[in-house]
Write a protein that binds this DNA or RNA. Structure first.
Length: 273
DNA sequence: CCCCAGGGTGGAA
DNA sequence: TTCCACCATGGG
């Protein structure tokens, strides 16, 4: 299946630390699982090619392709400090992920690096898919993890995050409606609810709300964002994460999350600072 | 040996 | 409120 899209940067989107379950092939395409089915993305020019049993509407929604980013681009180009990111990252979009997978994935992300998060994600998927006996290697459900044990998760390399993921899986599998409540409510209330999960603090909560619940005013402040924000907006002063978070939300409002994604990937690819 | 990675928790100040 | 030791693991 083919989708024509003149404003979508697949590589920047997939390489910007949003999802952990996709692998990049030598040919530059991305293989993974979506909605429990295998999928493969590749892009040439303005054409996105999708391998797998999916409708174009499903993929357009997944990649947020119908979101007009004009406001985001105006913001970035209006600030001379940020404008450079548009050169190579324009078309970077926020992936509208499954809520549980975003929740679990970013519990794994705390004080961790992307490479190792991807490895843990894969090892979890392989282990539980084998246990399930399914051909497709998909990420385990909350119920599957809940029926596991801390020593299993530690054996898969989660370290001290094992009890966090286990307890969160227990809660979600017993209270599946809790995720729908978070989706339906506003950012502030959703933030309080997500912060109540074990292993989730301010930074991970904003990632979950941004990537898993499409709360575009969320602004996750990790070490990269802290560095680039201190440098560009605070003269290198050692301001706190909370200060940066409040500043960004006040400055960029309902598209702070999109600005953050360009800042994060821009910093990591050395376009910024 | 050190520091770092898309940090969070619990307890002290 | 803010500060800080500690938490697993792997890479540099």
């Amino acid at each position: 299946m083919i989708i024509s899209c003149d404003d979508f940067n697949l590589e920047a989107t997939m390489d910007s630390g949003q999802v952990f379950g996709f692998s990049k092939t030598d040919a530059g395409s991305y293989e993974g699982v979506l909605d429990g089915r295998a999928v493969r993305f590749s892009k040439k020019g303005d054409t996105l090619s999708v391998g797998g049993a999916f409708t174009s509407n499903r993929i357009r929604d997944y990649f947020d392709l119908d979101h007009d980013l004009t406001t985001v681009y105006e913001t970035l180009s209006a600030e001379e400090k940020l404008a450079p990111v548009l050169g190579s990252l324009k078309g970077l979009r926020l992936i509208r992920q499954n809520s549980w997978e975003a929740l679990a994935g970013f519990i794994l992300s705390s004080n961790n690096n992307v490479k190792r998060i991807q490895r843990i994600w894969r090892d979890l998927s392989v282990y539980f898919s084998g246990r399930r006996g399914s051909a497709v290697i998909s990420f385990p459900s909350a119920g599957e993890i809940a029926s596991s044990h801390e020593r299993i998760l530690r054996g898969l390399g989660l370290g001290y995050r094992a009890p966090f993921l286990l307890r969160t899986a227990h809660f979600v599998s017993r209270n599946p409606e809790s995720l729908e409540v978070i989706r339906a409510t506003d950012y502030e209330d959703a933030l309080r609810r997500v912060l109540a999960f074990p292993g989730i603090g301010p930074k991970v909560a904003d990632c979950v709300l941004l990537y898993g619940f499409q709360k575009y005013e969320a602004f996750p402040v990790d070490v990269w964002i802290l560095r680039v924000m201190r440098s560009l907006y605070f003269r290198g002063r050692r301001v706190s994460e909370r200060t940066v978070h409040a500043y960004a939300r006040r400055r960029w409002g309902g598209h702070a999350g999109y600005v953050q994604q360009y800042l994060f990937h821009g910093a990591r690819t050395k376009i910024l600072v």
